[in-house]
Amino acid sequence: MPSLPPIRPEDEAVAEKIRPGGAFDAPVDEAHGRILFELALRLGDDSLILGQRLAEWCGHAPGVEVDLSLANMALDLIGQATHFLTIAAEAEGKGRSADDLAFRRDVLDFKNCLLVEQPNGDFAQTMARQFLFSAWQKRLFDGLTACADDRIAAVAAKAVKEVAYHEELAAEWVIRLGDGTEESRARMIDGLDWMWRFIPELFETDEVMTDAAARGLVPDLASIRIGYDARVRAVLAEAGLEAPADQRPILGGRRGHHSEHLGHLLAVMQYLPRTYPDAVW
């Protein structure tokens, strides 16, 4: 039986350069890819679901200018979702596209926060949701401009100005309705009341976020919270409203545990690609 030639010292030097990922390729950090996938998915799902919610207003808003503003915010959000889900699909590396992620996942696989899937309700409820979300997203994206992943940093830098606009617009409506008529004020109070319990989830630091922070992918959520709380307090004060009493926080969206509302939203959003798979324009 032929024996293998003896190992020479120079072979050992070469062997040391060969990494477990294969030959001379860059090392494959599977954990990093997994965290990047999870993070990009959360960011993309937040934007996608809220974009779809706002699009439901199209043609139904209280006035044509409001209709335009809601549809335009929806466009911005769906644009963000396209970028984030593309990054997620690449990080996953299983050949799925951004469209596959948007249209071929079911409720349990969505990782958006519960706030964005809440029903539109009346216009006040929609604006309460928008303000509480955009004020958070603005501060998150500010931090994400320094993300260790260049692509996420680029999307955040691009989108942060648009989100600042969303926040400003929604804040103005919270103030106008809160400081408006008895009717508009009562509706804004109800809207804020509905959305308030979903705020803590925005700042939830689970394993994914802790790992992502350690990798320089996300800013420290606790420090974002300080500016967020101050901003919300200031806008409510200007609107002459009191902050709703803190309620038991509801969590779970980041793990795929959603409210009944998400399934109905997906049924509408995914109808066409599910009924006619692979249809093209």
């Binding site: 466009l75 911005d76 989108a159 648009e162």
Partner: peptide, 8 residues
């Protein structure tokens, strides 16, 4: 480069 993130 795109103008806006969601520019159709």
């Amino acid at each position: 480069t795109p103008t806006y993130t969601g520019c159709p």
